[in-house]
Amino acid sequence: MPVTVVTHTEPFAGHRSPNSEQPVTMIARDLSAARSLRPHRHAYAQLTLALEGVLQVTAEDSSWIVPPQRAIWVAANVEHAVTVVEAARLRPVYISASHDPFPGEPCKVLEVSPLLRELVMALEQLDPAAPSARSRMISDLMLDELPRLATRPIRVPMPRDKRLKSLCDALLANPGAQQTLEHWAQQVGASERTLARLFEKELGMSFGQWRQQARLAHAAPMIARGMPLSQVAEQLGYTSQSAFTAMFRKTFGSPPSVFFAR
């Protein structure tokens, strides 16, 4: 599927940046699948979440698949990019750097609590150009809620080497692909030994381990929208549902049914 790339400012025209008077702002945008916001940074922090749909957020040499149950915190001045995997009700929340609830952390995965979700929807109903006592109260409560949220990261590290990045991008787009490292070596113009060495050097894991992480990351939105585990396992290239569940439990310490329990 072709990806439509847009600039940072194009889809968010009219957005009001956070400031001392209004430290938390947001802008509502519904984006179709395959839209992409190219790498950018800004002087305020961003909480990237979607009320519906699935996002892929890339920052700090890592990539996260983000279903509605999760959000990605990106600190001020950290370069990041967003791709819409499934049509999304994108609700980025912008927070003044002076009110950072996670000082010293460039990126952080957060569970979206029912309260945070309601606060985002409440903030959406207010005029961003006219700060009010209500918007400030919502902002204060949101800033109090964020540090309380549990983190359950499904992080997929991304490489700098162009050949390895080409391979990783292809697997993120099709995590169920069964091709061997030898096949990918031919596709990206490097030897199998070179790619294996790069996986260990740049990502700290083998090709098989990285592919498992990519598959598990994609499993999150599939499970979240109610897809049977047997179909999830099949689409992600596992030989059986039990094989998928075993790998999930090994990685996260619990089966999918427990991990995604609300």
Rank of each mutant, 00 (worst) to 15 (best):
P147K: 01
S63N: 13
R38T: 11
A233C: 11
H183N: 13
L195M: 02
P92K: 06
P228C: 12
T239E: 07
Q46R: 01
S254K: 13
D161P: 09
A71I: 06
A196G: 04
M121E: 07
A177Q: 10
W184Y: 14
Y94V: 01
T7W: 07
T7L: 05
Q56R: 15
Q212L: 12
P2A: 12
L110I: 04
S139A: 15
S139I: 08
K165E: 09
S98E: 14
D127E: 10
R136N: 13
L119P: 03
A59K: 00
A13Y: 08
F244M: 07
D30A: 04
N19G: 15
L181Y: 04
N174Q: 09
Q186M: 14
E86P: 01
A122W: 07
M205Q: 03
A246F: 08
R38D: 06
S98W: 08
R70T: 07
M1D: 14
S135M: 05
M158R: 06
K201V: 03
E118A: 13
A50E: 04
I95V: 14
P68C: 00
R262S: 09
R35I: 07
Q22P: 09
H99W: 07
P228K: 13
F244G: 01
V85W: 09
A28R: 12
A129Q: 14
W210K: 03
A133L: 11
I223F: 10
F12G: 00
E124H: 07
E105T: 15
Q187F: 02
L181C: 01
K250M: 08
A233R: 05
R152F: 11
A75L: 04
E145Y: 05
E86V: 02
P153Q: 03
G14W: 05
Y94P: 01
R160C: 06
E118N: 11
A50V: 03
Q231W: 00
E118T: 14
V120I: 09
V82L: 02
E192A: 13
V57G: 00
L51K: 06
A196M: 02
D144T: 04
T48S: 13
M247V: 15
W210N: 02
Q178K: 15
L167T: 06
A224Y: 15
Q125R: 15
P228M: 13
